[in-house]
Design a protein around this nucleic acid. Structure first.
Lengths: 213, 213
DNA sequence: GCTAATGGTGACCAGGTGGTCACTTTGTTT
DNA sequence: AAACAAAGTGACCACCTGGTCACCATTAGC
């Protein structure tokens, strides 16, 4: 015993995945406080005591999920940043589509992030949010830095403001895709891949005019 | 009796305001489900039964607050839209600063909006959100329509995409001002008025290049 | 002074919460 | 087969939730 979550690591991979999937779903659907451990165990068909043996507490469940999933979020972006194809704005466009794709494949994780960002009473909120924002900021800053150095961005612009602008537009693009009710006129929510590519291009074009040389 | 909230309307204005202020604060601090009626009455120093006599239910409390405050949100924007001073981008900049000012004076209302937007299990969420988005969309669309008609915006751009872009940047600007943890490098959160004006100008300049003729 | 109506009260309710722990079941080792 | 350890269990706990309602206090009209 001794270590609490050792028991969980020893479980059969199949069961482990089921537990994580169900817990993730519960947090994504209801946020943190409104998520119910009772509901989790009921849907999993296991006893409540088991879950607490695995993770110690409700917060332990959430922290475990969070740690596992943040890493996943960073991976596809890194690949694009390190691939040298296209100019600055092509890369922005690719990043945008890569994020859309990730969210499409892992919608629950993104929904947890949105709740985390705006539901202030999350436990450990500051820590988690700082971790995510830092990663996002670092990524964009590297991208913009490279674009400025290679003269693809209009001189005289403040790097912070460029990062802010990119972040704002890209984030909203993703939010509109994922959150029902935010879309008003763009047709982004629930759009097919071809439409998304067209819209991403349209957004990038505006950025190209606003930020490019 | 007959009508439930008639009782509340008959109250002394001072008490009415206190009740509304405390309820607003509770929802702003904790969202809907995590908000506690018990805490409200404890802080107000009144009996729980009284609150339920006033509003019938927890949801009734929230709906009453919501109805009262949305109207307040629309007013300052309308004034700017109807005042004809400056070109399109000046108006955008003024709108931005007007919103910042409003949020500065009514931070609780804005926090409720943010929770409403991303905390999916809010009751009546779709209805409330649609109401807000529609108002925001209508406002921006009128602004953009006027800008396009008077030739201040680059031809060939899709109106929906312009509205989307404006909305994204402005919304993020406001979020960064209001939500701690979202700011990374811009220095918007907790900034003084002069700084905000500078930053708003910087954002508008980028938009001017990206969207203007 | 009596009556009626209104505002105000708080003990009480059923139901849900995260968390516990003495216990049983299962699997492995000798 | 005996012994041991680890996984699994679910009744139970204290606490909090939104909501109720029989009762009390204060005023107004007569």
């Amino acid at each position: 015993m001794e270590q609490p979550q050792k028991t969980f690591e020893n479980l059969a991979a199949e069961k482990r995945d089921r537990v994580l999937a169900e817990a993730t779903r519960e947090f994504a659907d209801h946020g943190y406080h409104q998520a119910s451990v009772n509901r989790m165990v009921e849907r999993l068909g296991i006893a409540k005591g088991s879950l607490f043996k695995y993770f110690g507490s409700k917060q332990g469940i959430f922290e475990y999920i969070f740690g596992h999933t943040v890493a996943q979020f960073k991976k596809p972006l890194k690949e694009i940043r390190d691939s040298a194809s296209g100019d600055f704005f092509d890369r922005v466009e690719m990043s945008l589509l890569a994020c859309v794709d990730f969210i499409d494949r892992h919608p629950l994780i993104y929904r947890i992030y949105l709740k985390l960002a705006f539901q202030e009473n999350f436990p450990m909120r500051e820590k988690f949010l700082a971790e995510i924002r830092q990663a996002s900021d670092k990524y964009l800053r590297a991208l913009v830095g490279h674009g400025m150095a290679s003269g693809q961005l209009r001189p005289g612009l403040d790097q912070d403001m460029i990062v802010f602008h990119l972040d704002a537009v890209m984030d909203r693009f993703l939010q509109t895709c994922a959150v029902p009710g935010l879309d008003s006129g763009t047709g982004l929510h629930g759009a097919d891949k071809a439409t998304l590519q067209t819209k991403a291009r349209a957004v990038t074009d505006i950025l190209r005019h606003g930020l490019g040389t």
